[in-house]
């Protein structure tokens, strides 16, 4: 059985090879950069697997990295400052068991925010990444009412010093983009990268549609769950230990 080897496969093999020859590094299989000029494809379904047993309550590496990457400088106003990702500490009142986990946009397959948006500014890319098209967002905030995960923020004041990769301005709604700009360039989200570097590598990024990806293999062999799976919105962010 010989199949034509694509450039993508080659790159993937190279990446796995790189991991193999560098022991000690977390096993991550980065996606190849999409060739310039081609769009996001439904062949991919980008997602995360977060192992909460490796997530320490005091650690905010992912949150800090997100703020730096996305230019979320804030105004020291916790009620109105944007947060794409936050650490939630969960306690079971019956047993006292505690754990901590990051919560961000869950990039649902059936996103309520997209359903309710009057203009179609809330949208899902072909590869499952949920974004706000701030060119046509009118700032009605209905998506914030609809989101089950409280993942969205409204920009409450004028902004300056934005990152070129994350344009953001007053009067629009915003949320985690899963670092679409990094994914399109073949990278992985900033939170995942910093968790591997400064945390305990609790976060794994990958393509849930690719049966050979590390995330797919783990999801198919280990028990995973999603926040509020009962709502049926099918998030792309999976958790272990919640």
């Amino acid at each position: 059985m010989s199949q034509p080897t694509s450039r993508r496969d080659l790159l993937k093999a190279a990446a796995i090879g790189a991991v193999a020859i560098a022991p000690g590094l977390t096993l991550i299989a980065p996606a190849a950069a999409r060739p310039l000029g081609t769009g996001a494809s439904a062949a991919n379904r980008w997602g995360l697997l977060i192992d909460t047993s490796k997530c320490d309550a005091g650690c905010t590496a992912c949150v800090d990295a997100c703020k730096t990457e996305m230019g979320l400088t804030g105004h020291d106003r916790p009620l109105t400052d944007s947060q794409y990702i936050r650490k939630v500490d969960v306690t079971d009142p019956a047993s006292g068991h505690r754990h901590s986990l990051p919560v961000m946009c869950q990039h649902c397959a059936k996103p309520p925010c997209v359903d309710v948006c009057p203009t179609g500014a809330s949208m899902k890319r072909a590869d499952g990444i949920v974004l706000v098209d701030r060119h046509i967002c009118i700032g009605c905030r209905y998506c914030m009412m609809a989101c089950p995960y409280k993942a969205r923020s409204f920009i409450h004041e004028d902004q300056s010093g934005q990152k070129p990769d994350n344009p953001r301005g007053k009067g629009c709604v915003e949320s985690c983009t899963l670092c679409a700009h990094r994914i399109d360039a073949g990278g992985q989200p900033a939170c995942v990268e910093s968790c591997a570097k400064d945390g305990r590598a609790a976060m794994l990024f990958g393509d849930l549609n690719d049966p050979n990806s590390e995330i797919s293999r783990r999801v198919s062999t280990e028990a995973t769950s999603r926040i509020r799976a009962d709502l049926g919105v099918e998030p792309a962010i999976r958790y272990q230990g919640i």
Binding site: L36, G37, T38, G39, A40, D127, D133, H135
Partner: peptide, 11 residues
């Protein structure tokens, strides 16, 4: 629109 909605980069 191409970049944001379709994810086409490098145009």
């Amino acid at each position: 629109d191409d970049t944001l909605r379709a994810g086409i980069r490098g145009a």
